[in-house]
Amino acid sequence: MVAATALAEIAPPPAAGAALDIEQVSHAFNIDGTELPVLSDVSISVEPGEFVALLGPSGCGKSTFLRLVAGLDKPKAGTLREDEARITRPHPSRVVVFQDPTLFPWRSVWDNVALGLEAQGILKSQRHRVDAALDLVGLASFRNAYPHQLSGGMAQRVALARALVNDPKILILDEPLGKLDSLTRITMQAELVSLWQRKGFTTLLVTHDAEEALVLANRVIVFSDRPARVKADIRVDRPYPRHRGDPYLADLRRQILGLLGLDATW
């Protein structure tokens, strides 16, 4: 599914991930004059190259947290650091893949993937990276297609290629597989793991699916209800590729669902 040769072209030395330090971050929304706290004193320290999954009840502030990491919003309190440098604005070293592919409908697949390089003004000399990224997600033959011609899974792959072409140090995934059918989803989970293993970027994945978190991540952080606090920080020390039926994972899953208040169901 993933071409190893293409990978060598996209990043000369495997881009190592960056460390991420989140210190006592709190955030709130202002809705009609009332403060609505969404994050409360969140501190997380992520090692370079870690795959961290963030789990939490729906609407607890996971996506808000990702926007802070991406630099799209500024926290009300606390600091976020990428490799010691304070995060104040978006930077292509931290790229987000959103739940909706949000491809630009007026651009072809190739031009969508080229977006980051074009925005940074380096497209002319780096065109091969776009081709390599498209190879990486197996969509080289769709380079001239327009987004409305793609299926949901293909569109999400293009979004992934659009992120990876920038050689991010931190890949931020906001439920990127949430809207895909279960088969495409399983395939893409495997692809994500393999990409992460080869390229070594730090990954932050927001999901509401405990199984997905356990199959993909080597660390699962469970958020509480809004305002989100870190409720549990669980290491998942199992080799890849992981098996969904693994009793160790099943046990962890039961624990996590318990933390989310769903223990009675399992």
Binding site: P92, V96, T102, A119, Q120
Partner: peptide
Amino acid sequence: VSNAYYDVARTLGAKPSFLVLKVAIPAAL
């Protein structure tokens, strides 16, 4: 124009001129 487009472009390193010329205008066409 949906804010999501601006978010995507900004995380990819787009400057304001890029947001106007390559995001806002084509989307508004």
